[in-house]
Design a protein around this nucleic acid. Sequence first.
DNA 1: GGTGGCGCATGACATCTGTCATGCCGACGT
DNA 2: ACGTCGGCATGACAGATGTCATGCGCCACC
Lengths: 206, 206
Amino acid sequence: MNGRSTIRLLLADDQALVRGALSALLNLEPDLEVVVEVGSGDAVLPAVLEHRPDVALLDVEMPGLDGIAATAEVRRDAPDTRVLIVTTFGRPGYLRRALQAGASGFVVKDTPASQLADAVRRVHAGLRVVDPALATDSLLAGESPLTARETEVLQAARDGSPVATIAARLFLSEGTVRNHLSSAIGKTGAANRAEAVLTAEGNGWL
Amino acid sequence: MNGRSTIRLLLADDQALVRGALSALLNLEPDLEVVVEVGSGDAVLPAVLEHRPDVALLDVEMPGLDGIAATAEVRRDAPDTRVLIVTTFGRPGYLRRALQAGASGFVVKDTPASQLADAVRRVHAGLRVVDPALATDSLLAGESPLTARETEVLQAARDGSPVATIAARLFLSEGTVRNHLSSAIGKTGAANRAEAVLTAEGNGWL
DNA sequence: GGTGGCGCATGACATCTGTCATGCCGACGT
DNA sequence: ACGTCGGCATGACAGATGTCATGCGCCACC
């Protein structure tokens, strides 16, 4: 690619301290070089286009675009840059959505630090890197059983808003909102609106 | 203290990747040295007693003991070790409780990486390090207005359990649980049980 | 061209939630 | 000793929530 055998990296994470620390960690490796750091999802694509890194390390939880959406953008406009997702939460749905968006790898933040550099090298070599434990979880949890509307309604219910507020926000009748919620509660196996939100979040369905 | 002018550090964070990365970052500084890393709150005190670091960097969110409780332990049994809290969430209540527990500093994870080493040095020199923006928030939000029971009941309501479940878990009558919840809802200015949980969490009252 | 899934809506019903008044008890402060 | 506050409880009430049956229109699939 560029400097013969050094792998050029983009690093995206909203927490400056973590970003700087990861940068320090990766720069210790002689064959790796962080060429650009960004702190929001919106900044990823422009930075990729400008610096053309070999591998982009993206956090999922970011302001603006999340890491998954940023992945899709990068794959579309800069297919030479491979994407490695690094995230706090090992939610099954995240993995599936990340891979569908075109990510080459998926690493959770409690894997040992020593393995990160290897993951980067493997991704750069064209291999897939996926946490094995997470992969089985992902298969077990499967795709979201929720329809688009149900997902939307559940999202609007996350902050504890009453039905009336949700209905107004989505321009639906209150009865319809209750129907969607009831259906979502049934599908998640919850007893409750709040529980349904929690299990859906835990599975990465929101 | 030990190696003349090098500051010896303990690093506690449950995410191995972040822990390793912070370690790399801090070890870049010639006057800092990470002598021990742990991944849970319970492991902090034994590690401190064994290695006697000058400064302990603790995350708040950890399995077992959280960073605040670990701080109190360290202050009690190893008063020579100063504590710097490093956390993801800038919740006002966290700051107050951390300082009450005897922490010398409090840094959120989206401060620039370059300032962390300085924070460590200042703490080691006996100074206090506090995010100024967070300090004002903390004053505004003040202490938790919730009574012990109300707090307990709200905690039990976090997962969306219905009143009956909460009552059974705390050995209370359903009516009493509803009273405590109603009171907590009033004090938090929420319209709702779920909202009350969210604002209480946001303020670090749980 | 029928069938099924989804979105939307309404109405009715049972249950859960939040509020309020009231009362009892123990702890604490004056 | 008295008042206040917190914890606990009960009962009653209004309003929010969850469930169900039913109906309509749309679209995709066979």
